[in-house]
Design a binder for these strands. Structure first.
Lengths: 357, 357
DNA sequence: TTGTAAGCGTTATCAA
DNA sequence: TTGATAACGCTTACAA
């Protein structure tokens, strides 16, 4: 995909078709006042006689006038626009966050410019640059590891940037500690007696959240003197079908894991499907856990043990951070949202030696 | 939610913080040329000596110049911006479409402004108005029934509007015949011998797609001399848990349906959960069908019979329609995308009298 | 091949 | 309480 090189337009019309756009000048003429007065009633800046105000309002109505946002943005140097770049909307967790982000932004009068990166760092950078060129006043991105250019560009223009799904002390962010999440999941399974733990992670290249989750798992294992051998760590894109592939690969390894941590719920769903297909009883023979707590997680059979990630809250709080910053308020730069381990039926004690078969 | 009344900003700064934005004038000065020349190399309009071109390019680089989109939009009266309003991104089918829409738009140099309506017609209208005020050059909405204001506003400005997930001969649209889809599903089940067909529809108020689907089902039944009694038609929001509620309601009615058509796959998933919970065998005792063919549909147990809706294609083609229109091309206004019945394991022949129990 | 200058539609300053 | 008018940063005739 060459999202980078916009194709040239074939024919450039000078003005949008339709009846020539009505401007403030038209309104002014129609109401028999000056254009300055029109502006004043429009923005409620400066005094206007009630009678005049009514006149202008009526003219605006009759002419169906809408102020030109570009002109306003130009003179005020404020676009009232916020940009967001997410990896993909196909992952429900990001879709939910974007939904909340947009909704909160609109309440404050901002419009959302949306782009997606496809989990590609250089593409992400391109998208941010495009948004900045469009004059966005704030930017939201997912994750804490990016092309350094992103932070630079935003900083250079004084455009606040909020990084989500991550926690970094040095930048504005709304998220959680992915490493801790990985650790928590691993510790939980270790406490259940599992010693052979496999991982179906997301693709870690260009995805610091996925990488951190793996790191957390590794840490927890190390703390108990265990390690995560290469064959026990499979990386797959975040899709159900990939979870199946991932589990298949893990099952081929020796010793066979008694528990599998998946990078998110989609992978976990796939893993559960594969286990069922192979007649492997979950959780008796194999425990499976995910991350996100998507809508369906509680409804799988057995219900999926997972880490709840408050996507809606992340989106909403990101919006609030940007809104407040643009409002000139000083706000906490680091916002941690609470995740929590939701224990359901897909995980259980490690099978005793001999339990199996 | 009062998304309609943006709260007033607390403090309005004059210019965005940071080092005063570098303008074309700065670049011109730096390169020792006129501002017109800068514009020429920037847009590749008009002749520029190679040497000068290099000079300017270098200056642009050194100064980190980015053209001001608002100024450009103002003078060209083109914002290179497209607006979309979907019911919600929480429904994967819309998320996928938006993803495709955005990606295709960017390729053509457009940026996507996104808003959501929450399935509320007046809110949808508000969002469209906001987008129009932002100067979008094209608009995408979901469905074919809206506040009439929407079509008027777009028409008045000559802004192309594409309506999706629907087929209307009189307007630009990319979609399919929801009524036909409902009919097809009902006919399929009728052909299997079902005579007691229940429906868990989406909420039809303000949702013409949901309403059309129900209408199609009703039609198919009528064609065989059957009707759809009130108690056999349940409307619930598009969520898994609501599907459970819906099926519960249907099961309480007499005679109990042998087949249930759900407004989308989420409702169908819920219905299947409820059936399982009650020990009702699917499809032996009860057939269940959905619409959308979401990622998980094939992986349910039993796999879900559904209608495949090409959401990605709808998004992409909507983008292409708008791009071509804005390019001055004459394009087909009505684009039908193919849906297809995917028969899987969740539906089967109607149980013979006495089969049950 | 280059530069000058007239807008584009607003907002905001300053007089009146 | 109102009206001229100068920006805002850019594109684009038109001149040179």
């Amino acid at each position: 995909m060459d999202a980078d090189t916009p194709a040239p337009r074939r024919r450039a019309r000078r003005r949008p078709a339709g009846p020539d756009r009505v401007s403030a000048r038209d309104v002014a003429r129609h109401a028999g006042v000056s254009i300055a007065t029109v502006s004043r009633v429009l923005n409620d800046s400066g005094p206007v006689a009630d009678r005049v105000r009514r006149l202008v309002a009526q003219a605006i109505d009759e002419l169906g006038y809408t102020p030109n946002a570009a002109a306003r943005a130009l003179v005020r140097s404020r676009s009232e626009t916020i940009g967001a770049v997410v990896p993909t909307l196909e992952n429900a967790t990001f879709a939910i966050a974007v939904e909340a982000l947009q909704s909160r932004l609109r309440q404050a009068g901002y419009t959302l410019l949306l782009a997606s990166s496809g989990y590609d760092r250089s593409n992400e950078s391109t998208q941010v640059r495009a948004l900045l060129a469009r004059g966005v006043e704030g930017v939201m991105v997912v994750g804490g590891a990016h092309d350094p250019e992103i932070e630079q560009l935003c900083a250079a223009r004084g455009v606040p940037l909020v990084q989500t799904w991550t926690l970094r002390p040095d930048v504005a962010c709304v998220g959680f500690d992915n490493r801790a999440v990985g650790r928590q999941l691993a510790d939980y399974l270790l406490d259940l007696g599992h010693r052979q733990i496999g991982v179906v992670a997301g693709v870690t290249r260009g995805n610091d959240r996925a990488a951190e989750r793996v790191a957390g798992i590794t840490e927890a294992l190390a703390a108990r003197g265990l390690d995560l051998p290469r064959e026990q760590l499979i990386e797959r894109p975040y899709r159900i079908a990939e979870g199946q592939i991932g589990l298949r690969a893990l099952l081929a390894s020796e010793p066979r894991p008694t528990a599998v941590i998946c990078g998110n719920d989609l992978l976990a769903f796939g893993a559960m499907l594969e286990a069922r297909k192979r007649g492997i009883r979950v959780p008796d023979e194999l425990s499976i856990a995910g991350i996100d707590d998507l809508e369906f997680a509680a409804d799988l059979d057995p219900p999926l043990t997972t880490i709840r990630v408050p996507a809606e809250e992340i989106g909403r709080r990101s919006a609030e951070y940007l809104i407040d910053r643009l409002d000139g308020q000083t706000v906490a730069t680091v916002t941690e949202v609470a995740t929590s381990l939701i224990v359901r039926g897909s995980t259980g004690p490690a099978p005793q030696r001999g339990d199996r078969e």
